[in-house]
């Protein structure tokens, strides 16, 4: 009996989970993709690993030059 109850409880949890998933609102992929592209375009210039550093000085991990100006 206990096992049947636990199976029922497990299945209830699974079904409740699916009810939650089924009830969410969705948007078309075309809209979602357009938003991803827009976000990337808006932030491209801040992305040092994408567009590079405006000068090596702003790269904190640049190679240290071997001589320094006193």
């Amino acid at each position: 009996m206990d096992m049947m109850v636990s199976t029922l409880q497990q299945q209830r949890a699974v079904t409740e989970q699916l009810r939650r998933e089924a009830s969410i609102k969705r948007i078309p992929v075309s809209v979602a993709v357009a938003d991803i592209v827009r976000y990337i375009n808006e932030h491209e210039q801040e992305d040092c690993l994408l567009v590079g550093f405006s000068s090596q000085k702003v790269n904190p991990f640049r190679e240290k030059s071997s001589c320094t100006v006193l």
């Binding site: 808006e42 801040e46 992305d47 994408l50």
Partner: peptide, 9 residues
């Protein structure tokens, strides 16, 4: 996995 700042990479 990891994203770059803009999410392009």
């Amino acid at each position: 996995v990891e994203w770059s700042v803009s999410g392009r990479l």
